[in-house]
């Protein structure tokens, strides 16, 4: 069993808006082991990005605020760490790549300038070595013409190339944990396949743990070892990827898997989960999935189930004796 490197414990993050407190992340728990690829899946607005921004110390604040819980990096609680400490962690230990590679690269600096700047933050090398390290990183992420690319600007690159540059920048500090928030959502399938392949390769070669955030169950099934399923700001299921896909124990997970059309065979009719995803904070009591659940019981309307289980956890009364 490898060591836990990052542990999120009862994390609560809220936005304080004119309409009151929005509990975007409502007490979530999960841990990441050294060198593993953990998937976090869930539909739009369930709190995936807010979770990653909370870990990185990059929440827009105000209105965002961590209102409870802990984020333990190698045992140290960083949920309320000083900005100077976070900057050091972001430069050396935890890195992040975002969904839209264009907005996260600065359009007025060359690829080379941005990459060497990232390297210099945590590594004082002479100019010549900075450049050769930058070139090396571009090669590592599979970019052709690395030397020329260093002199080019972000708009001269395609979406897939920009995402590779972002990965190169993120990997420049040799991070222990890489958070990838929908890294391929804006890309075409053939380019997505290239990027996922690259991430799996980097994970094998550098042992960087990856938190892969996505709404695509296919991506999770193909790339991750363990998976956390989120719904409306809470973790509803967690476990080994095979257990989750073959024996989903939360009705939401089961519904999600059954809703996807199959590439290999044609079904007459798709399974549907009735209704739609609730706004955070709109359901005041009981299980957040109750209004959409096919298996709903009386107590689901009044009592909120806990996340229970050992290696395969689920937040549902169907699998719990308690009430």
């Amino acid at each position: 069993m490898s060591e836990t490197i990052l542990e999120v414990k009862g994390l609560k993050t809220s936005f304080f808006t004119d309409d009151g407190e929005v509990p975007a992340v409502d007490g979530i728990n999960f841990s990441v082991n050294e060198g593993e690829i953990l998937g976090i899946v869930g539909e739009s607005g369930c709190g995936k990005s807010v979770t990653s921004l909370s870990i990185m110390g990059l929440l827009p604040s105000p209105p965002g605020k961590i209102v409870g819980g802990q984020i333990l990096y190698k045992g140290e609680d960083i949920s309320h760490a000083k900005e100077s400490r976070m900057r050091k962690l972001r430069g050396n230990d935890i890195a992040m790549i975002f969904q839209e590679p264009m907005t996260s690269l600065n359009p007025v600096f060359t690829i080379g300038e941005q990459l060497t700047e990232a390297i210099r933050l945590h590594n004082h090398l002479p100019k010549k070595e900075l450049e050769s390290r930058a070139e090396e990183l571009l090669k590592m992420v599979g970019l052709p013409r690395a030397r020329e690319l260093l002199k080019e600007y972000p708009h001269e690159l395609s979406g897939g190339m920009r995402q590779r540059v972002m990965i190169a920048i993120a990997m420049s500090c040799d991070p222990k944990v890489l958070i990838a928030d929908e890294p391929t959502t804006a890309l075409d399938v053939t380019i997505q396949a290239q990027i996922l392949d690259l991430m799996a390769k980097l994970n094998r070669e550098t042992h960087t743990a990856i938190i892969l955030i996505t709404h695509d169950l296919g991506v999770v099934a193909q790339v991750c070892k363990r998976v956390v399923v989120m719904y409306a700001g809470k973790v509803v299921e967690e476990g080994d990827v095979r257990d989750i896909f073959n024996h989903p124990s939360h009705p939401y997970t089961e519904g999600l898997i059954r809703s996807i059309p199959d590439l290999y065979s044609k079904k007459e009719k798709l399974y549907t989960i009735k209704g739609s995803v609730p706004k955070p904070g709109s359901i005041k009591q009981g299980c957040l999935f109750a209004p959409r659940c096919d298996y709903v019981m009386d107590k689901c309307w009044t009592n909120a189930p806990e996340l229970v289980g050992d290696s395969h956890k689920s937040r549902c009364f169907l699998h719990q004796e308690q009430a």
């Binding site: 399938v189 053939t190 997505q192 396949a193 996922l196 695509d216 169950l217 296919g218 991506v219 999770v220 099934a221 193909q222 790339v223 990827v241 095979r242 896909f245 073959n246 898997i257 996807i260 590439l263 290999y264």
Partner: peptide, 11 residues
């Protein structure tokens, strides 16, 4: 194109 689609089945 077909082979690039991530299949939602780990097996």
């Amino acid at each position: 194109l077909l082979s690039a689609v991530p299949i939602p089945d780990p097996d």
